[in-house]
């Protein structure tokens, strides 16, 4: 589904050269549920941005569903990104002036989906994350866990084949972390969408089947393990 071949990303800060990602090969199959872990500065987020076509590698190439992205114009990259890829960020990145539904509609707007259909699909996505009753609330009126669920709904509303999540639980407590991961795993099972989650939380990584560990911009280990069973406490209050 997505293949990275020898990708390298070099940042230059003054005279210093930082190889954030260093000649990395990676292949992710359709329907996978994987996590990318590693210490701070190991290149997790940079790799996610390269896979998500938000950033271009210094060398090497990324192909999405067999389509080589090297040499595509920014416009073509934007198009590919909004059709195939959904993003979930650590800070949720919801637009404060839009309510939950309008935030979820945003990617559909850019896909020029007509209003009534946009509305319907946004409500469906909110339903999937269990927030259809908060559709008219603005982000400031939602808890952190709810905001992240809205962000997930926004990532899912375009039916992307690949969902990239960068520390999606970084600002959530244990119960909300559990719920967000549970939600993503259920979606992965139900829709077959591919999820790649960057995290430094071992608990989150433990819930994924495949765990890729990065160190110094290279893959230190790539292991298939058993998924831990999720045990979210249904009685715990959402914050």
């Amino acid at each position: 589904m997505i293949v990275a071949r020898g990708v390298t990303k070099v940042y230059r800060i003054g005279p210093t050269e930082i190889r954030a990602v260093d000649g990395l090969d990676l292949s992710i199959e359709a329907g996978e549920f994987l996590s990318i872990v590693g210490p701070s500065g190991s290149g997790k987020t940079t790799l996610l941005h390269l896979l998500g076509l938000l950033d271009a590698p210094t060398s090497g190439s990324v192909s999405v569903e067999g389509r080589e992205t090297l040499g595509l114009s920014p416009r073509e990259l934007t198009r590919l990104r909004r059709e195939k890829i959904g993003f979930v960020f650590q800070e949720f990145n919801l637009l404060p002036v839009l309510n939950a539904r309008e935030n979820v509609e945003l990617p559909l707007r850019y896909l020029k989906v007509p209003g009534p259909e946009r509305h319907r699909r946004a409500m469906e996505a909110l339903e999937m994350v269990g927030l259809s009753d908060r559709a008219n609330n603005r982000p400031a009126q939602l808890s952190g866990g709810e905001q992240q669920r809205v962000a997930i709904a926004r990532a899912l509303v375009t039916n992307p084949t690949l969902v990239l999540a960068d520390e999606p639980t970084g600002e959530l407590d244990t119960q909300n972390t559990c719920r967000v991961i549970e939600l993503m795993r259920n979606l992965n099972r139900e829709t077959g969408q591919t999820f790649a989650i960057v995290t430094h939380d071992p608990m989150v990584a433990g819930y994924t089947r495949r765990v890729i560990t990065l160190r110094d911009g290279k893959i230190a280990s790539d292991s298939m393990g058993a998924e831990a069973e999720l045990a979210c406490d249904p009685e715990a209050p959402t914050i």
Partner: peptide, 16 residues
């Protein structure tokens, strides 16, 4: 700036 980045990440083109 962050909001603009987000919009571009979810598919906003330069023109919009």
């Amino acid at each position: 700036t962050r909001e603009i980045g987000l919009k571009k990440a979810v598919g906003a083109e330069t023109g919009s």
